[in-house]
Amino acid sequence: MDTKDWLQRRQVLIYALAVVLAIGVGVSRPSSTTFIEQLIDPILAVLLYVTFLEIPFVRLRRAFTNGRFMAAALAMNFLVVPVVVWGLTRLLPPEPVILVGVFMVLLTPCIDYVITFAELAGGNSEQITATTPALMLVQLLLLPVYLWLFMGAEVAEVIEAGPFIEAFLVIIALPLTLAWLTEAWAERSPSGESWKATMGWLPVPMMGMTLFVVIASQLPRVQDSIGQIAIVVPVYIAFLVIMPVLGKVAAGVLQMDVGESRALVFTSVTRNSLVVLPLALALPADYELAPAVVVTQTLIELTGMVVLTRVVPAWLLPERPTPISLSNRSRGD
């Protein structure tokens, strides 16, 4: 068994150890969080680079032409999710400082580590990769609109585009370009092929590092406000339960294959917390709890993603989903 297979077989244990270590560091060394937080974007970029290397670019080019999946991902994230989020937030007290954090994080689909988690669950990661530019652009345009609809113009006006654009360039565009150049190098040079093979065992360790830096750097934020923000935890857990089921239903209606179905589930449930966090930190002083609300979702989601990488292929979508007929006709008609 080579190193890559060994790591993949023990990935859940590796992620669990990363989470435990992160909690230990976050609790015992809160002074280190500023430094660790600076590592999130670079480590995410490396994670996405080694993930993109796993995707043959011939398949990725083909994924861009799959209008059905693109439309399904956009509909789930920008039509279905807002309805679900609106319903779930009716369970929360009408406190703007809490609601703005919940809306900001749950209304923005993930564009980074969702690719890795979908791949770990056997999903069609190239389809998700192909949707990231559209998901990024649409959420940038619609987040202020949804905040205006749900909370009023005052909150919507303080959302800036800069962090979204920077995150897309650093976390998606740069790693994708480097992966494409690496693949071209590997096709023309033995040293390039050797480099690509070496990178092949990194996805699992890099995911473990991502879990570590995110949890270790953000846990102290939650600790300081846990009494005030604990009320959002059931909402985040409910979202993690509801959206995979709705994603499965949508995939069945559209008669997607198992890889596309799993990809649709993950893009429907995973949120853009790491990109939204700088937006929450930039809010006025009246919204000082919003970053902690966002971080709470990050911690719950990362734990939930580790669970979903097992639950989705083993139980929710173990094989080709059964198509859901939209016709009321019986076989005898």
Results as ranks from 00 to 15, higher is better:
Thr210Gln: 06
Leu176Val: 13
Ile36Met: 06
Ala75Met: 12
Thr131Met: 10
Ala72Pro: 01
Arg262His: 04
Phe117Pro: 03
Ile55Ala: 06
Arg29Asn: 09
Thr33Ala: 15
Ala134Gly: 03
Leu181Glu: 11
Arg320Lys: 15
Trp201Val: 07
Ile43Asn: 01
Gly227Asn: 12
Ala186Glu: 01
Leu316Lys: 10
Leu283Asn: 02
Asn66Met: 05
Leu92Thr: 12
Leu60Ser: 08
Leu246Gln: 05
Arg188Asp: 03
Pro175Leu: 14
Pro244His: 09
Arg221Phe: 05
Thr267Cys: 11
Gln297Ala: 09
Leu299Asn: 05
Ala292Lys: 02
Val204Trp: 02
Thr34Ala: 14
Ser125Gln: 11
Pro220Trp: 12
Leu142Met: 15
Phe150Cys: 04
Val241Trp: 03
Gln228Arg: 12
Trp148Leu: 09
Ser325Tyr: 05
Val294Thr: 04
Leu17Asn: 03
Thr296Val: 10
Ala251Asn: 03
Pro323Asp: 08
Asn124Tyr: 08
Ile98Asn: 01
Leu147Val: 08
Asp257Pro: 04
Leu181Gly: 09
Met209Glu: 03
Pro144His: 07
Ile231Arg: 09
Pro96Cys: 07
Val97His: 02
Trp6Tyr: 12
Ala153Thr: 10
Phe239Val: 06
Glu54Arg: 15
Phe150Tyr: 13
Ala282His: 05
Ala197Tyr: 06
Ser330Thr: 14
Thr198Ile: 03
Val19Gly: 00
Phe69Lys: 04
Phe52Glu: 06
Ile300Met: 13
Ser125Val: 15
Met1His: 13
Leu178Trp: 10
Val12His: 07
Ile300Gln: 07
Gly192Thr: 04
Leu326Ile: 15
Leu219Gly: 05
Glu193Cys: 01
Leu326Gln: 12
Glu95Tyr: 10
Met256Tyr: 07
Gln297Glu: 14
Glu157Gly: 06
Arg90Ser: 13
Pro220Arg: 13
Thr33Met: 09
Val85Thr: 13
Leu174Trp: 06
Val294Arg: 05
Leu44Gln: 06
Val265Glu: 01
Thr322Phe: 00
Val307Glu: 08
Glu126Val: 06
Thr182Lys: 03
Tyr49Gly: 07
Thr270Phe: 05
Gly227Thr: 12
Val27Lys: 06
Thr198Val: 08
Tyr15Phe: 15
Leu176Arg: 10
Leu274Cys: 02
Val85His: 05
Trp195Gln: 02
Val241Thr: 13
Ile43His: 00
Ile36His: 01
Thr3Asn: 01
Asp224Ile: 08
Leu88Ala: 13
Gly192Lys: 06
Thr116Pro: 00
Phe64Asn: 01
Pro30Thr: 11
Val312His: 03
Ser261Tyr: 08
Pro244Phe: 07
Arg221Asn: 11
Leu143Thr: 08
Phe239Ala: 04
Gln11Ala: 08
Ala72Asp: 02
Ile23Ser: 01
Gly87Pro: 01
Asn328Thr: 12
Gly26Ala: 09
Thr132Ser: 06
Gln11Asn: 08
Asn77Gln: 10
Gly162Thr: 15
Ala63Trp: 02
Ala179Leu: 11
Glu119His: 13
Leu107Arg: 07
Val138His: 00
Gly24Pro: 11
Asp112Glu: 09
Pro56Phe: 09
Phe35Ala: 15
Val232Thr: 15
Pro144Leu: 07
Ala73Asn: 06
Gln127Gly: 07
Tyr236Pro: 00
Leu44Ala: 11
Leu240Gly: 10
Val241Cys: 13
Gly67Asn: 11
Leu149Gly: 04
Val58Lys: 13
Met209Pro: 00
Gln297Asn: 14
Leu299Gln: 07
Leu178Lys: 11
